[in-house]
Simulated scan of single mutants.
Amino acid sequence: MPRMPSARQRGFGLAVSALTLTGCAHLVAPAPETTALCETDEVRITTGFVGAGHHGCAISTLGPVLTVWPEASIAGPINPSPWYAFEADIRSSKQIRLQLDYAGYWHRYHPWVSRDGGERWQQLPSEAVSVGEDDHIATLTLPAGPGHLLVAAQPVMTPKDMAEWSRTLASEYKLDLINYGESLDGRPLEALTAGPETARHIVFAITGQHPPEQSGVEAFKVFAETLMRTLPEDTRADTRIILLPLTNPDGLARGNWRHNNGGVDTNRDWLDQSQPAIKAATAFIRNEAEGRTTVAFMDFHSTQQTLVYTPPLEEDLADMNFPRALKQAFDAGIDPDPEWISGHNADSGTSKNWALQTLDVAALTVELADDAPQAEVIKVGEIAARTVISALTGSSGKED
C-alpha cells in the first residue's frame, strides 16, 4: 500500500453546519455498567455508542494508549481512513493525556470533542495534539474534568441522524421519501425523489459510501437543498431528481473506515454487486433511469484535498458537456481550483465507472478535503447545483 500523507488540521477547519447540528444529537452516553476499554483513577474509556471506533486500550506510564483498528476486510488492505471515536469519562480536575496508536496506518483526522453527548462539537486546539515523526502515534491532551467527553475523528453522525435530515428535506421541499431495499444488517435504504414519472430527464446524486467522509456528505446536503430550492418549476416539470443520502448505513453505524459489515468497500462493488446495499441501489437507479436521459450523476466523498474524478475530458465516452461546465464553474468559483483527475478503468467497481458503462453518463466523484472550510463546502454544493440546473435548462427544449 502506498504511504498516504497525513492531513493535520489546524484551527477549527470545517465548521459544523446547521444541517449537521440538526442531526447529531442522538448519541447516548454509555450506561455505568458498560465495559471499559481501560480505566485509571483519572479516566475511563468506553465505546458503547453507535458509530464508535474499533479500539483496544492499554495503560502506559504516559496514560491510556488506544489502538485504532480498521474493520474486517475480505479484499486486501483497507484504504487509510483511520476513524476513531470513544468516550472519556474524565474524573480528574487535571488535563488528560492519551495516545492513539495507528500501527501500520497514519494519523489523518484532527480530533473533535463534545461535552453534551454529540449535540455540539468543536475541534481540539492544535497545541493539544502532537503527531510523531512517522505519523503512527498521535498524542492528545484532553480538557480537564470532571465530566463525559466524546472524542472522534469527525463529529459523529448516525443512520438516525441522516434519516432525520432526509425527512426534514422531504417535508420542506415536497420530496417523496422511499425505501428501495435493505442493507446487510437489515437497515432500511432510503432515497429522496422528486419530479413526475413522465419526466424525460433525470439527475442522480449519492453520498455516504465511506463513513468518515463527512465533508463530502455536507457538500451533498448543500447540493440537495440548493437544487430543490432553486430549480425552476417549468424545468422541474420535466425532471426526476434522485438523492441517495446514505448508501452504507452499516458502515456508519459500526464506526467503520470504509467498508460495510460484509468486509467490502461498497465503492468497489458496483460492478459485482455482491452486497445487498449496492445491489439494491443499482437496481433502483437503473429502473429510474429507464427511458430517460441522465443529465448528471455525482457521488460525494472526502479525501486529503478537494478534487474531482471524471471520465477523460478530452474523449467522448459520453456527453461531456456537464463535466466540462462544472470544471469551468469550479475553477471560477473555488480558490484554489480543485484538481481534476480524468480516467476510466472499465474493471473498477466504482459508482462513477458503473454509471458511465450502464447509464451512458459522464459520472463524477466529487471529493471534498477532510478539513475543507465551511465556505468551500457550501461553494462546492451550490455551484454543483447551479451547474445541474443550467444543464437541465439547456436540455429542456431538446428532443431526446
Results as ranks from 00 to 15, higher is better:
Y105W: 07
Y105L: 14
W106S: 14
W106D: 11
W106R: 15
H107N: 13
R108S: 14
R108T: 09
Y109Q: 02
H110W: 15
P111K: 04
P111G: 03
W112K: 01
W112S: 08
V113P: 09
S114G: 15
R115K: 14
D116T: 14
G117L: 03
G117C: 06
G118F: 02
G118I: 11
E119K: 05
E119S: 06
E119H: 01
R120F: 00
R120C: 00
R120A: 00
W121D: 05
W121M: 10
Q122D: 07
Q122W: 05
L124S: 05
P125W: 01
S126G: 03
S126D: 03
E127P: 01
E127W: 02
V131P: 04
V131N: 12
V131K: 15
G132F: 00
G132M: 00
I137D: 03
A138E: 12
T139H: 04
T139Q: 14
T139N: 12
L140N: 05
L140A: 04
T141P: 05
T141L: 12
L142T: 09
L142K: 13
P143K: 11
P143M: 05
A144Q: 09
G147H: 08
G147Q: 12
L149K: 11
L149F: 07
V151E: 09
A152D: 03
A153V: 07
Q154Y: 13
V156W: 08
V156A: 14
M157S: 11
M157W: 10
M157C: 12
T158G: 07
P159L: 06
P159A: 04
K160W: 07
D161T: 05
M162F: 03
A163V: 01
A163K: 08
R167M: 08
T168V: 07
T168C: 10
L169N: 00
A170P: 03
S171C: 12
E172V: 12
E172K: 11
Y173D: 07
L175I: 10
D176W: 02
D176R: 13
L177D: 02
Y180C: 15
G181P: 06
G181L: 11
G181Q: 01
S183D: 09
S183C: 07
L184R: 04
L184Q: 06
G186F: 06
G186C: 05
P188L: 11
P188K: 14
E190L: 09
E190P: 00
E190K: 08
T193Q: 06
G195A: 02
E197N: 08
R200C: 00
H201P: 00
H201M: 04
A205M: 05
I206C: 08
I206A: 09
G208Q: 06
H210L: 03
H210P: 04
H210K: 04
P211V: 14
P211A: 14
P212K: 12
P212D: 09
S215H: 10
F220C: 07
K221D: 04
K221C: 05
F223I: 11
F223E: 10
A224V: 13
E225V: 15
E225L: 11
T226Y: 03
M228V: 01
L231H: 12
P232F: 02
P232A: 09
P232W: 11
D234Q: 11
D234W: 07
